[in-house]
């Protein structure tokens, strides 16, 4: 929908829970922000099936492959990935605080905590890169190497996407009045960030804890 049409809608776009008893023409088909959020949640549900498929594949490989670890590899170190996990998971709380600040119309508070989220996401990516460099096996080192890099790499792409989306939203916060009438982009980015976190927790348990 083009923005002029959204502007013309008689009701504020963020009112989604309000359902009138008598159907009125104006209530229907104009709630763009609500539609986008709904569509985005549907998309995330679908996206989670890709991860679910990779996880299933990992479990199958882990339980059936005779020579699971490549020769010379005894397992994965836990310490650095655990720190990474703590950083990423706590960034979910930080982005939530940023969102609360935006709701309270405190733009600088929003920007500060939003930037902190981005820093934590970037630290996670950096930690991931450091770990990759230190590993003695590569992508083509058997099924283990393949699934390790596939899972962490595919998840890392999502973290990168999240950080890029966050920088976009941060930039848009400097457009005067941009977040006055609802903040679909911020809400969606935040939801995406929580999604990426939950996926990482499962991934961490599967790859690092279950060795």
């Amino acid at each position: 929908m083009n923005p002029t049409e959204a502007d013309a809608s008689p009701n504020p776009p963020m009112v989604t829970s309000h359902t009138p008893a008598i159907p009125s023409v104006a209530e229907h088909g104009h709630d763009d922000a609500g539609n986008r959020m709904f569509g985005f949640i549907v998309f995330l549900l679908s996206e989670s099936v890709i991860f679910l498929s990779f996880f299933t594949g990992y479990i199958v490989y882990k339980t059936t492959t005779p020579d699971w670890l490549p020769s010379g590899v005894s397992g994965l170190a836990m310490r650095d990935p655990a720190i990474n996990t703590i950083v990423l998971v706590s960034s979910s709380l930080v982005i939530y605080i940023a969102e609360r600040f935006l709701h309270a119309k405190n733009l600088w508070g929003f920007r500060a905590f939003w930037l902190l989220t981005m820093a934590m996401g970037s630290y996670f990516l950096y930690g991931q890169a450091v770990e990759w460099r230190s590993l003695p096996f590569g992508f083509t080192a058997g099924v283990f190497g393949g699934s390790f890099y596939l899972l962490t790499g595919f998840h890392g792409l999502h973290v990168l996407t999240g950080v890029l989306l966050q920088s976009l939203m941060l930039g848009r916060s400097f457009i005067p009045g941009n977040y006055n009438k609802g903040e679909f982009g911020v809400a969606a980015t935040s939801l995406f960030w929580h999604f990426v976190d939950v996926i990482w927790v499962i991934l961490f348990v599967l790859i690092y804890v279950w060795q």
């Binding site: 549900l45 679908s46 099936v49 890709i50 498929s53 594949g57 992508f139 393949g146 595919f154």
Partner: peptide
């Protein structure tokens, strides 16, 4: 929505 991602996962792995 629930089926295609599984094929995508398999196709990505096959492509790799």
């Amino acid at each position: 929505l629930f089926g295609l991602p599984a094929l995508t996962a398999g196709a990505v792995m096959l492509l790799l």
